[in-house]
Amino acid sequence: MKFVKSTTFTADRPWGALDIAEMNGITTRLHWTDQPYKWHINDGEEVFVVLDGIVEMHYRHQGEEHHEVMTVGDIFYASVGTEHVAKPIGEARILVVEKAGSV
């Protein structure tokens, strides 16, 4: 059993993570960041939930770049092959659920 106070979690570097659980090859991690990630494509599906802060999620669809502003409670689902990058506005805490070992 584990309780996590997500709004007080910080890491020693941007995108530092607290591993919450690994179940049947799926990991759940809490990330803290104040810096953008990098454009990437996961090798599996990803669920991205903003728990604290504001994040601009940029993604490419049919060769065109789009973005959505995400606030607390907003969820982004990246299917296999979705190129995307998260850009926080200030500090943000994000719950990520994805295949274990995914980059």
Results as ranks from 00 to 15, higher is better:
V47T: 13
M70H: 10
I89M: 05
D52K: 11
A78K: 00
R60Q: 06
G81A: 03
L51F: 02
E64Q: 03
E83D: 08
G81D: 05
A86C: 08
V47I: 15
A92C: 03
D52M: 08
A92W: 01
F76K: 13
M70I: 13
G63L: 00
G90C: 07
V50T: 08
G90F: 00
A78H: 01
V55P: 11
E65F: 00
G81N: 05
V72M: 12
H84L: 00
L51H: 06
V55Y: 04
H66T: 01
H61P: 10
R60P: 09
H67V: 07
I75R: 10
H84F: 00
E64P: 06
G53A: 14
A86M: 12
V47E: 10
E56D: 06
G81R: 05
Y77P: 12
Q62S: 09
I75P: 09
H67K: 07
H61E: 12
V50C: 09
H67C: 14
E64L: 01
V49C: 04
P88D: 13
H67L: 09
H67N: 13
E83K: 01
V49S: 10
E91P: 11
Y59T: 04
P88V: 02
V55W: 02
R60S: 05
H66I: 00
G53E: 05
H67W: 03
H61T: 13
V50Y: 03
G90M: 13
G81C: 02
T71H: 08
E68A: 15
Y59N: 14
D74A: 09
D52I: 08
